[in-house]
Design a protein around this nucleic acid. Sequence first.
RNA 1: GGCCCGUUCUUCUAGCGGUUCAGGAAGCCGGCCCCUCAAGCCGGUAACGCGGGUUCAAAUCCCGCACGGGUCACCA
Length: 543
Amino acid sequence: MRELHRWANPTTWPTAPIPTARTETARMTSPRPVRTRFAPSPTGYMHIGGMRTAFFCWLWARHTGGTFILRIDDTDQERNVSEALQPIFRAFRWLGLDWDEGAEKGGPYAPYYQSQRSDIYRAAIKKLLIEGQAFKDFDPPEVVQQDRAEAEAAKRNYVNIRRSLELTPEKFAELEAAGTPFVVRLLVPRDQSVTIHDAVRGEVTWDCGTMPDPVLMRSNGSFLYNFASVVDDAAMEITHIIRAEEHLTNTCVQTLLFRALGSEPPVFAHIPFITAPGSTKKLSKRDLDKLRNTPALKKLFDRADEVFPKLGLGDSKSLSPVMVEYYEKMGYLPVGILNALARLGWSLDDKTEIMDLETIVKHFTLDRIVKSSAGFDGDKLQSLQAHWMNVLPLPEKIAGVKPYLEQVGWPADDTHLAKILPGIADRLKVFSDILDYAEFFVSDDALAFDAKALEKIRTQPQAREIVASLKKLLTEAPDVEAATIDPLVHQWAESQGLKMGQVVAPLRLGVTGRSVGIGLFDAIALIGKDSCLHRLTRLEQTL
RNA sequence: GGCCCGUUCUUCUAGCGGUUCAGGAAGCCGGCCCCUCAAGCCGGUAACGCGGGUUCAAAUCCCGCACGGGUCACCA
């Protein structure tokens, strides 16, 4: 107990650098170089909405030639911070969003973990206490709760009662001497109001008369986010705080804190939420069940349930579209994700949709951020992704697809893939889509015939005879290049008075095991004569 | 409930008083192409929350209302 409260007397506190106020002249002579930060707490995963916020911070820094900082808000040190941080770093690295200062990198304002900055917060508390801008509140939590309950019952807005400020100096000294627990609260100037000029929302004003004095330091000596965050932003010379709209209300307190600390508040930019399309609720990991049923997201969930089990990665519950990792594991391209994220609440002009990173960086400005919330549309994402996958050079496609093939035990060499991938062409939207093309990778006997397609062929008249004739045709063909087989099959169909559909369907099923896929004659050429014949024989036997 | 924010097609958005009976993209529908699927091309679909002002003129400015959201912790 005693140890816990050794901070009771400010004069015994260690000194640490106190955030310094920038001088008026320095500010006026030249605009400060932009410094933005993203400050995640170690949650064990990276939320797609958080990623978009981080992206905007990064973009603003890159657009202005400024500095982007990754700071860790780990004031609750319960969990294993290092482990819970890995997915976050991983997401940044995967997307290619680098940071100039911060966790795992260091920099002139180190440390960048809040858990390591207690001395700095302590010094700031001391300063505020000495200056009378903050005060010790000895009211125990029960009393505060009681006050709050009473205010609520009376339908009054709750404002804390400053009993500790009414104490006589003697009583105050007595409480201190006895080591009575206390919290430190900011003394809110209740006769003032706070106005900010938000870069996105414009002028926003709050009346300080109706707000409680926020707690800065808990009775156990730890600090609150709102306080630590401002101390850090001031100390790290952050010029632009770009963050989600949910923090807008915090901004009043934080502005007051910047002022109290003698620091010029940075420019705030509160960006809109990402929601589920058709809803106005924040996209949250908590209501996955609702999300999976929203039309614009359903496909993403369904695909996860199809693909992730094959890869031994669980399903859409363990790896859902609200997590950045979903996209990485599914085989999306960073440029596709970034393009989609950029278009969520920001636009370049009235028509540009396809943008690479360089274009986005070049044009990104805060004033073009939209004010209203943005629904995360899986279809739109998919279409952007499809574009970028389509323009990806072949060697990169090969490299992207290989890990998936290895994972399911269908290894293929580059030469083989260099033939197959151009055939699959734009049907490959994400790398894991390669898993849909078993026909090019599995052995003839391992190839499964699609049940539905098989049923359909069975009901088709003369299916067996057609397959038998096609086998003969293939056997006698000089080669199985598309340019050879295509006309041969056409001629034969014509000679038999058959429509191409009647001929192609069984042939496709036999050769690829499915009723859909790439151009049939290209498929035949890729699979090769022997395999095609072998597979057709198998089909004959099953018919 | 107090305070704060938001509201243009199903979705993402353009629009900052006239050049817009509102433009682009995704979706959806139809057509072309075609051995299927995908892509591509062509065409179609569909919006300024409501009510008052201001103005010669309003999606655009002002005021109400409604609806949605956020936030009100010794959480982050």
